[in-house]
């Protein structure tokens, strides 16, 4: 069977869910005739028609607002941000309307808000964002960041079937670079569950999205030095799989968190607090972080390369930690 790209896996999930359930609709800018800026929804309009694949004006607030309304009416809308950076335009609809709805008055918002995030493609300050932590800080949302085609497909299906607003961050660097064989037929991946991507005994590297692949690359390098890193893919940032994190730390006693998001206020800080609160006795060294710099994402390739984490940076910090 031909290998499936991360992008194609997302398209398949949309296609199969819309085929399975007429309540699933897609709404966003250029998702119909054009098939989406990255072609994620190519062919959906032809198959499902104008009523289910809705091209909108350039209005992020209206897109998310309308999707919330559709959810109240019993549909399962999937709303696309053309680039996830533009999610800032509809922050209020997400954080005040969708996130608080069930808590305040028992009205579920079965909304998926998906779009391409992340850097490494020289998109500059407005086409490279990793805005997950604005939303991880918002009770009522779920935040999903898949790293593989299998997970992208299975998690998107779970997100569509979920009764809560799910933010689904697709890392655009992975869209056409990561491929794998996918199983035939319907499957889902549960939201809120991390997975061990590589077993190890010397330290734990926690990561997600594009940085999972950077971390695995680093782990392969570390192996040559005799350092066995355990690599965990968080997959979901909210709700966080605390059990998986604490289990691995209890085993390796050392923790390194790698994320492409900027440093201050990134998920690494929250995980460090969690581990020191809950498993301080398990630690044999300081919790370390490898993250992007605390700057906007710069445009020029040398600047962006300097800004982003890479395998060498991960190896260097992991080595220090392993020898601590």
């Amino acid at each position: 069977m031909a290998e499936t790209t991360y992008l194609e896996a997302i398209r398949q999930a949309l296609f199969e869910e819309m085929d399975r359930d007429p309540a699933v609709v897609l709404i966003g800018e250029d998702v119909g005739v054009y098939g989406g800026a990255f072609r994620v929804s190519a062919g959906l309009l032809e198959r499902f028609g104008w009523e289910r694949v809705i091209d909108t004006p350039v209005s992020e607030t209206a897109i998310v607002g309308a999707a919330i309304g559709m959810g109240y009416a019993g549909l399962r809308p999937v709303a696309e941000m053309q680039f996830i950076d533009f999610i800032a335009c509809c922050f209020n609809q997400i954080t005040n309307f969708a996130a608080k709805s069930h808590y305040r008055w028992g009205a579920p918002v079965p909304l998926v808000l998906r779009g391409p995030c992340g850097g490494g493609v020289h998109g500059g300050p407005f086409h490279s964002a990793n805005p997950e932590m604005y939303f991880v800080h918002t009770p009522g949302l779920k935040v999903v960041c898949p790293a593989t085609p299998y997970d992208a497909k299975g998690l998107l299906k779970s997100a569509i079937r979920d009764n809560n607003p799910v933010l689904f961050f697709e890392h655009k660097f992975l869209y056409r670079r990561i491929k794998e064989d996918l199983p035939e037929g319907d499957y889902t991946v549960p939201i809120g569950k991390a997975v061990v991507r590589r077993e190890g005994r010397d330290l734990t590297i926690l990561s997600y999205a594009a940085m999972l692949h950077t971390s695995l690359e680093a782990a392969a390098e570390l192996e040559k030095e005799g350092i066995e890193a355990e690599v965990i893919d968080l997959r979901t940032l909210l709700p966080l799989d605390r059990g998986a994190i604490l289990t691995s730390v209890a085993k390796t006693n050392k923790l390194l968190v790698v994320h492409e998001d900027t440093r201050t206020g990134g998920i690494a800080g929250e995980i460090a607090a969690l581990v020191t609160e809950s498993a301080f006795e398990d630690l044999d060294g300081p919790i370390r972080r490898v993250t992007s710099l605390d700057t906007p994402v710069p445009y020029a390739p040398p600047l962006e390369d300097y800004f982003l984490p890479n395998a060498a940076k991960v190896v260097a910090v992991a080595r220090e930690l392993a020898h601590y």
Binding site: G65, A66, G69, K100
Partner: peptide, 25 residues
């Protein structure tokens, strides 16, 4: 009846979405 939020204007796209869903259904 949809519960409002305090931020003004946001109900307009939400109620538009319900109208769109109503037509679809």
């Amino acid at each position: 009846v949809v519960s409002p939020i305090s931020m003004l204007g946001d109900l307009i796209p939400v109620m538009t979405g319900i109208a769109m869903a109503g037509r679809y259904l």
